[in-house]
């Protein structure tokens, strides 16, 4: 019962945080440097790990698909499988998980320590709402950066699949054939679906991490607990939301 109340409190607090942050949206142009800083953190510094991960996910997909499809002569459809999987599911999902692990944890840790060391209270005392300078730039940055990260993840994953499908001996699929089937079966709608999903995931991850960070109470030990909680809740929400989003976007 106590836990249930805590969960409901968390949901309510998060929603209140969201409303307050959105209410400060008109102040965003004045916080451009802060926004840019968050974009740099969320987008630019996440790019290498997103690229590496996507390349190998595409490669593994091609490898597995080649292994399964080769036995019934459908290996030219590897392109369509990798294309659709990356665009609709794995691209946005992997970016969101990386975001939760790399950016979400950082946000939760930063905000939790600010809260624990009463920096947030100091801001409030100075009549600076923490939602305005701590939450809004991050939300805006993730909205702008998520599609960029996702489309890069998709393209790198497609090329990774193509390289693996071409270079592995028992598949040996020509890249022309790979991209021909990829283009035939993958439409821009699939990519757009993935971008919408990524947008929702990123937004939710950042919002949850901000909320958990800002609601941390206690001493330094709670900072670590807050980070763990933020990442776990983010991952769970990503997967749950993924199901419902996929269903509603089909």
């Amino acid at each position: 019962m106590k836990q249930l109340i805590a969960i409901l409190e968390g949901i309510g607090g998060t929603l209140r945080l969201l409303v307050r942050a959105v209410a400060f949206a008109p102040t965003l142009p004045r916080q451009l440097p802060r926004f840019m800083e968050q974009c740099y953190q969320i987008g630019y510094t996440t790019l290498p790990i997103v690229s590496i991960l996507s390349f190998f996910i595409g490669g593994v997909l091609a490898l597995q698909a080649g292994y399964s499809m080769e036995s019934f002569g459908a290996k030219e459809f590897i392109g369509s499988l990798v294309g659709l999987s990356m665009a609709r599911e794995l691209g946005p999902m992997m970016v969101a998980i990386l975001l939760a692990g790399r950016v979400g944890s950082a946000i939760a840790a930063e905000l939790a320590s600010m809260k624990v060391y009463q920096e947030v209270d100091a801001l409030v005392t100075m009549n600076i709402p923490p939602e305005r300078i701590l939450v809004l730039p991050r939300l805006a940055a993730v909205i702008v950066m998520m599609p960029v990260l996702t489309i890069i993840a998709n393209l790198v994953g497609w090329f990774g699949g193509a390289i693996v499908a071409h270079s592995v001996d028992f598949i040996a699929l020509e890249p022309e054939k790979y991209f021909e089937t990829l283009r035939r079966f993958t439409k821009f709608e699939d990519v757009a679906n993935g971008l919408i999903k990524a947008e929702v995931f990123g937004f939710v991850v950042v919002l949850i991490c901000c909320s958990i960070g800002l609601n941390t109470r206690g001493g330094p030990r709670e900072i670590g607990a807050a980070v763990t909680k933020a990442v776990v809740v983010s991952l769970i929400l990503i997967l749950v939301l993924d199901y419902f989003l996929t269903q509603s976007l089909l």
């Binding site: 489309i151 993958t186 990519v191």
Partner: peptide, 17 residues
């Protein structure tokens, strides 16, 4: 980075549609 992302989205759109 953002411009690169936009360009890639456009490339994907032009290629797939």
């Amino acid at each position: 980075f953002f411009l690169l992302g936009v360009a890639l989205v456009w490339v994907a759109y032009a290629t797939l549609s």
